[in-house]
Write a protein that binds this DNA or RNA. Structure first.
Lengths: 190, 190
DNA sequence: CTTGTTTTGTATCGATTGGTTCAAAACACG
DNA sequence: CGTGTTTTGAACCAATCGATACAAAACAAG
């Protein structure tokens, strides 16, 4: 038919994700996007149409990966207490290891009230995580390590908020020991 | 001595704060800063030297106000449980009323890993809030509505993280009922 | 090898960015 | 009423912004 692409599209989105993740949307220039992806301007605009569209692709890729990790964890046969415990522990470890935070949280804070489509994507993912967690908690009731008097959905909201809280605290300078104590205290509320 | 200022400096910082708060640092142009403050470029640069310096002034103003509100609340003679309850309830109410979030959280996410001085200011304020909360919890032990087996400092970290978590969840699209359930669940961990 | 279609690199677009220059205007002080 | 000092407004700066134009290059299909 015609001249074929010389690059892999998902690989380019992945590189763009790295750039947006470490620098944020506004502060990442199209020039930096070119350098990060290794593509020329034409290739980027021909494929992704605009900086904003490329960002949305990067966000979707990130969300897919993260949701994949979550469902994978929830599908193990750990107790629900252990599942949530390792979930929080992973967040603490990640925040301690680098300092670019979580791309979901970063995007929510920077763009959610300014870009309706980004906000919708974030909200959709929030609901997906909420439903997955709620189901896991519901079905984990028999484990006996979750307060049966508490609403599973409320606990799921709480777990999600705790994750966000740990991430904000990490960005505000809390050290690893502090983050770990937050995780431990949160587990107490289950 | 010389020609006097025609504007009030704190009032200008306050106007700049509004602009930075609703739009973020990068996305707020110096032109918008002029319009928000009602000042000309010369006045702004003569007084504040740079966009970044003006931002730091705005952040300091915001932090001062917020810390003032917190210490005021902690100085009441409510039980520690009630203090933290109204603290969380205020956050939920604020996040439900408008959609620009919290300037502290916004700044932490957008700038903390890119501007060392901003990070330092945020970290200092984190510690101030932590100390105030820790003291209040410690002295509220006798109320009997806080688990005496738990470390006061750990609970303080947890309260701060819960606030951040509620704010992130709000930005991600959680509704008021969800945020309230998070606050309720968190109180359970005390 | 031609033809048709797409990708790619380069050059460039107008607009906007944060910031400066400079002279006129404004006032306190003597 | 000068005089000295500062503030103010307007014009202006190079640099960068996101995005486009366009032709050469690359390849599949015939």
């Amino acid at each position: 038919m015609a001249r074929p692409r010389k690059f892999d599209e998902e690989q380019a989105v992945d590189a763009a994700l790295e750039a947006f993740w470490t620098t944020g949307y506004e502060a990442t220039s199209t020039q930096e996007l070119c350098e990060a992806t290794g593509l020329g301007r034409s290739s980027i605009y021909n494929t992704f149409h605009s900086k904003r569209d490329l960002f949305r692709r990067a966000l979707a890729l990130y969300i897919d990966r993260r949701t994949g990790e979550l469902t994978e964890l929830l599908d193990t046969d750990l107790t629900i207490h252990a599942k949530i415990g390792t979930l929080l522990e992973r967040v603490v470890a990640e925040e301690s290891e680098h300092d670019r935070g979580c791309f979901f949280v970063n995007s929510a804070i920077e763009l959610a009230d300014r870009d309706a489509e980004v906000a919708q994507e974030l909200e959709r993912d929030y609901r997906r995580r909420l439903d997955a967690l709620t189901a896991a908690i519901e079905s984990g009731r028999r484990d006996g390590d979750v307060d049966r008097a508490k609403d599973a959905r409320a606990l799921a909201h709480f777990v999600i908020a705790t994750i966000g809280g740990i991430r904000v605290s990490a960005r505000a300078g809390a050290d690893r020991a502090a983050l770990e104590s937050v995780a431990r205290t949160a587990l107490t509320a289950l």
